[in-house]
Amino acid sequence: MSNRVINLLVPIISIILGLLVGAVVMLFSGYNPINGYIALWNGVFEDSYAIGETIRQISPYILAGLAVAFAFRTGLFNIGVEGQLIVGWFAAAYVGVTFELPAIIHIPFALLAAAAAGALWGLVPGLLKAKFGVHEVIVTIMMNYIALHSVNALIKTVSGGNYKTDPIKETASLRSEFLANLTDFSTLHYGILVALAMVVVMWFILEKTKTGFELKSVGFNDHASQYAGMNVNKNIVLSMVISGAFAGLGGAMEALGTFGYMATLAGFTGIGFDGIAVALLGANTPLGVIFGASLFGSLKYGAGNMPNAAGIPIEIVSIVIALIIFFVASGYIIRVGLQRMNKKKGAK
């Protein structure tokens, strides 16, 4: 087998393995795996509504994935995407509710506010890391809790005691009649375009600018970068700020698109944490993040159809989906296995 064949075989085998193990789990729990997978497939592709909802689900995943991937390229673990996303969600909702502006200004303004809020939430761990060497993992995790509970309190304050903000003004909404009609009233919104634009932005920063080169260089080896005359601390802060901005935009997707408001959260949304897996699945590259987010978003939304169409309880569905992702992520094992097999054949 040539390397090319192996490269092609690895993802295929890992997905098949994931599906097989998932099928075993369904069989043992007394459900029909074939019906289950048909329901999963239909949940993603059955009609324009399902496709619309799937794309809607993918948009925040792309941005969360970008946020994690970007920080990772500078050698930073941004576990705080969840919190940055929450403050971004609130900022976008607040701007969407409070201001009266024409759509052409209102939407960019709300998006900028979300990005700025997320960036601010990324700035704090960035500064602490750069100035005092405080590990960003600890700070970002704690910032998640601060974000969650401060935003919950803020929602109450701005809404006069209600558990959710007022709906955003029509002019700030990313939803459109056109998309709603196209997808039979799904909640699909133009956020996917924002997400894809950010993919290009990340690629451009990393690959086409001097700053991007420095950021990556710090990621590879911060001592060498310092020796080469780069300002490592500045790059750490910058990386966290840009990462936070991506995450904040992810929150704007929820505020301006999916929901059109923000309700107090009883717990984390999980999008930020899933973003870590999305980024790693996509090997921390902009293009890879699109694939990672598509896989995550499709499985996540499509899974909702398994209880609906195949009667499989939601708990079993969660296990099956986790298994599929697990096998996709552990493609390396399969690669090693294939190479071994290859060698044995060669020895004979």
Binding site: E53, Q57, E254
Partner: peptide, 20 residues
């Protein structure tokens, strides 16, 4: 019935049942 895991499930779940 359909169970909602998060708030984002409300709309799709209602729609799924309407579709059925």
């Amino acid at each position: 019935y359909l169970e909602s895991v998060g708030e984002a499930d409300y709309n799709p779940n209602l729609n799924k049942l309407v579709r059925r």
